[in-house]
Computed example of a mutant assay.
Amino acid sequence: MLSVAHMPSDFHPLVLIHADLVGVTELAKILDSLADGKSTEALVGSNEVKTAALVIQVVECEGLFAEVDDALHWYLTKEMAANHASDLIGFVSRNELSGSVILENGILDETPIKVTVGEFDDAFFTDSALQ
């Protein structure tokens, strides 16, 4: 299961994705599929817990992040998607009970995506906890 939250801030905005190791592996597979050109768009999120929707799209330009129609959009090139998939697989291979990896593209003013395992419980992703 993947839970997604957008945490806007003037100083350190962040998109937080919380999952178990299986969920992180699924996210890596999604990014790998985007990198291979098997698809050009993927939706990440969970219906079990009210979370934000994260739409990942492959585009030709540098990575961008935007809020569009109440969904978070993360725009990546194929190379960026492949690099992030590799980072996630490396993280999963360590088989740690808790930890995180930050996915960044090195673009000015980008919003990083932090993928965590075992650092939060699902109650953190309720509307009241994020406000």
Rank of each mutant, 00 (worst) to 15 (best):
M1R: 05
M1C: 03
S3T: 12
H6D: 10
H6Q: 08
M7F: 06
D10P: 01
D10F: 08
H12E: 11
L14Q: 15
L14E: 15
V15R: 05
V15P: 02
V15T: 15
V15C: 13
L16G: 08
I17M: 11
A19M: 04
D20E: 10
V22S: 07
G23L: 01
G23T: 00
G23M: 01
E26W: 00
L27R: 00
L27Y: 06
L27E: 01
A28T: 02
A28L: 03
K29S: 10
D32N: 08
D32H: 12
L34I: 07
L34C: 09
A35E: 01
A35Q: 02
D36T: 05
G37Y: 11
S39V: 07
S39A: 10
T40F: 13
T40G: 15
E41G: 04
E41Y: 07
A42E: 14
L43C: 06
V44Y: 09
S46A: 15
V49Y: 14
T51W: 04
A52D: 15
A52Y: 09
I56N: 07
Q57R: 15
E60Y: 01
E60M: 03
E60A: 13
G63P: 09
G63I: 00
F65D: 03
E67F: 03
V68K: 14
D69L: 11
D70H: 11
L72N: 04
L72S: 02
W74S: 01
W74T: 02
Y75W: 08
T77C: 04
T77P: 02
K78Y: 00
E79K: 10
E79P: 00
M80R: 11
A82K: 12
H84T: 03
S86I: 03
S86G: 04
D87S: 15
L88T: 06
G90P: 02
V92A: 09
V92G: 04
S93K: 15
S93I: 02
R94T: 12
E96F: 01
L97A: 10
G99F: 05
I102Y: 02
L103Y: 08
E104M: 09
N105A: 14
G106E: 03
I107N: 02
I107H: 06
P112R: 05
I113W: 01
I113R: 00
V115I: 08
T116D: 04
G118T: 09
G118I: 05
E119I: 05
D121E: 09
D121W: 01
D122T: 07
D122K: 06
F125K: 04
T126L: 10
D127M: 08
D127S: 14
S128V: 12
A129Q: 14
A129D: 09
L130N: 13
L130S: 12
L130M: 14
Q131W: 06
Q131D: 09
